[in-house]
């Protein structure tokens, strides 16, 4: 009886604090999501953001996905991208965060500078990033040429994915670093001092104190990183590697291609839900497996 009452009270405050999300979900998320499910069963023509003449086609849109060579190829591209982007991004950001968590002059400035590439507005970024990586005028080639390297064909068939990855990690270090820095502030000083007294060196402290204490945040970066990388498209569409190169086409790039075409909304919605299930499946696996290694307090 007492237990039930306590449970009830627990439930009351759960829903009270959850209510903003429930309101937001019901008002702004669920209807567009369900509408896109509806679209995925129709052939739809969108004109001026208005839907005209929808025709029911059943599961045809979903069937097309498995016959769509470009899309099937894009699945492989997406996985290549994600497998490199996620771990490299996390490891580099972690090292940079630990480096800039040190008490030394200039850390604030360094953190800001490292965040800068993520702040270039879209309007400017097309010019800036494309000039860095284009084939005929590559600023990067000019710079590495000064120290006797290169030139690299950044947007050739073989290098295009590498360039996209480089750019993506380049922009991504700052934000991940900030999250990790925030988490590093709560690593107890007492534990570090105790370990130091026990004669632990920097590497031991890093793996036995810093990494476990950061594990909830690293887990967050891993899961959101996977979700983000499997849906990557901004970097690819920004760099716009040569048209004949399909090596950088990811699932969402292909999905967007059909969406932009006014007749493709139904098909692209079906594709989105296919992507949803792929991302969901992989996320669930990683969530289950890695959550065991996360160290939560209390």
């Amino acid at each position: 009886m007492i237990k039930l009452k306590a449970n009830g009270r627990e439930r009351v405050w759960f829903y009270a604090f959850l209510s903003p999300w429930i309101i937001g979900f019901l008002a702004f998320t669920i209807v567009p999501m369900l509408t896109s499910v509806y679209y995925s069963f129709y052939k739809i023509h969108v004109f001026n953001m208005n839907v005209v003449e929808p025709t029911f086609v059943g599961f045809k849109n979903f069937k097309y996905i498995f016959e769509d060579r470009l899309f099937l190829k894009s699945i492989g591209n997406t996985f290549t991208y994600a497998i490199i982007r996620v771990p490299v991004g996390i490891i580099v950001s972690l090292l940079v965060a630990v480096l800039l968590n040190r008490k030394m002059p200039g850390t604030k400035l360094f953190r800001t500078l490292i965040y800068l590439p993520a702040m270039i507005p879209i309007v400017g970024s097309t010019i800036v990033w494309r000039q860095l990586f284009s084939n005929d005028f590559s600023l990067l080639n000019f710079l590495i040429g000064n120290i006797g390297l290169g030139p690299v064909k950044w947007s050739s068939y073989d290098n295009a994915m590498g360039s996209v990855l480089l750019m993506s990690i380049w922009c991504g270090i700052g934000p991940s670093m900030i999250i990790l820095l925030a988490a590093l502030q709560n690593v107890p000083v007492s534990q570090m001092e105790a370990a130091e007294l026990d004669g632990a060196n920097a590497v031991q402290k890093f793996f036995h104190i810093v990494v476990p204490m950061l594990s909830p945040t690293l887990f967050y970066l891993l899961i959101t990183g996977i979700i983000g990388a499997l849906q990557a498209y901004a970097e690819m569409s920004l760099l716009q590697m040569p048209g004949d190169s399909t090596t950088t086409m990811t699932m969402v790039v292909v999905q967007n291609m059909y969406r932009m075409d006014g007749y493709g909304i139904g098909y692209s919605s079906a594709m989105s839900w296919f992507i949803f299930f792929v991302v969901g499946l992989i996320t669930v696996v990683f969530f289950r497996v890695t959550n065991k290694f996360v160290y939560y307090e209390g």
């Binding site: 999905q255 969406r259 692209s268 949803f276 991302v279």
Partner: peptide
Amino acid sequence: ATMMLPWVVTLVP
């Protein structure tokens, strides 16, 4: 799950 659906698909709805 709300993070896993490509957000652009909800633009038109």
